[in-house]
Design a protein around this nucleic acid. Structure first.
Lengths: 215, 215
DNA sequence: TTGACAGATATACAGTGTATGTTTAACACC
DNA sequence: GGTGTTAAACATACACTGTATATCTGTCAA
């Protein structure tokens, strides 16, 4: 076993693998160490704490988000960034939990904010408007994706899931949920809500906002 | 010390107190037990596991959300519910973290969905439209509030915080963030983003959606 | 060859959730 | 009132967590 072979990068590589495969709750320093053929305490020569590991992991996630390009039309760029954020969050299911805990995410987030602000300001937004716009878009992305991550049923199985659970939903107690499930089970709609629906609602609102009168 | 004095309700009472005061991470079965003058294992006569404690806590939180009333105009009711959700989530900072982990929240959530769906359907939405609308609104509430909970600075101190951090933001590396912070520090705007801004964007979009043509 | 020292290791500690087995207090019934 | 029955509180134990501290060791500069 060679010396000097361990680096923070390799630790984060392994940590992301574990988290992606088994979830963050399965990530322990001892497990991480044994995956790298090393003892737990060796990791502390390269990272300060487990929280730092989590922080570095989050940084990698944020870096994967498509950053708006300088010359692009703001609406197109925001749409692209939003879809990218969702995809990244979905592909690392553990990231959402970390995002809303007090874990910092280093300066990857600064680069993202910088690019986003820049694109919006170039598109005619004031800084205050850009702030509000970014916040509104991010709110939707985070909120939608969190809900999506918590939905226990596979998108392809809404109909059959609805049919399965239908008898468990008391028609007397929850008439509307019952009726909605019935419609899904019958195939009248698929029970999926659309990410783009809310996003376009917001983008359209922003378009009107910067174009016309203002709040 | 009387026997038979411990109940699940009292356990949850104590758990909420601990979580509100010190955060969920400070909540352990042993600490909870000692607060109730009891040993850790006694708790397990009343609750199945720590996860069940968390689930019951979440249920209480969800119950606090203002449910839409049967006769009310949908938009007013949705606005009221959204603001209420935000307030409830802000007053129990630990709830957000739990909401997006795999912890279930019992049937408090069913009562909320039932009332919300019913109100929207009464307002002319189809079930599919009601589903989408609820999802869009909830996305914003969750996402906005999560971001709000993570903002390290107190809303009243944006200006001074911006002034403090300004020198730490490299003007060369992050020109737009620098400029935005400068504007905040100078008091040109307060750096606060508005919950209602995004919410009204969505409500307006929904209004147009149910009124006019459709996607 | 010999220090020096970075980095791997061993040990230990205080904490976690909870499985398991035992004790005890409160109630129903003779 | 005495006596089972039983639910609830308790004690112990286990496997695990993150990490502080102290020790050992392989590699490189002198």
């Amino acid at each position: 076993m060679k010396r000097r072979s361990l680096t923070a990068d390799k630790i984060i590589d392994a940590a992301m693998e574990v988290a992606d495969a088994e979830g963050v709750e399965a990530l322990s320093m001892r497990k991480l160490a044994s995956l790298l053929n090393v003892t737990a305490m060796s990791l502390y020569n390269h990272v300060g704490s487990k929280d730092e590991v989590l922080e570095l992991m989050l940084g990698r996630v944020v870096t994967q988000i498509a950053r708006p390009e300088a010359g692009g039309y703001w609406e197109t760029m925001m749409r692209r960034r939003a879809h990218s954020m969702r995809e990244v969050l979905l592909s690392h299911r553990w990231a959402s939990t970390l995002l809303i805990s007090r874990i910092s995410m280093g300066d990857a987030i600064l680069r993202d904010i910088e690019a986003t602000l820049g694109c919006l300001v170039a598109g005619g937004f004031t800084y205050r408007q850009a702030d509000w716009a970014r916040n509104a878009i991010d709110s939707h992305v985070y909120g939608y994706t969190f809900q999506e991550l918590n939905t226990p049923v596979d998108p392809d199985e809404y109909r059959s899931a609805a049919a399965t659970y239908l008898p468990m939903i008391s028609q007397a107690e929850y008439p509307h949920i019952h009726e909605a499930s019935l419609e899904i089970a019958k195939g009248e709609y698929d029970g999926r809500t659309d990410f783009s629906f809310g996003l376009e609602l917001i983008l359209k609102g922003l378009r009107n906002w910067v174009a016309g009168t203002a709040p």
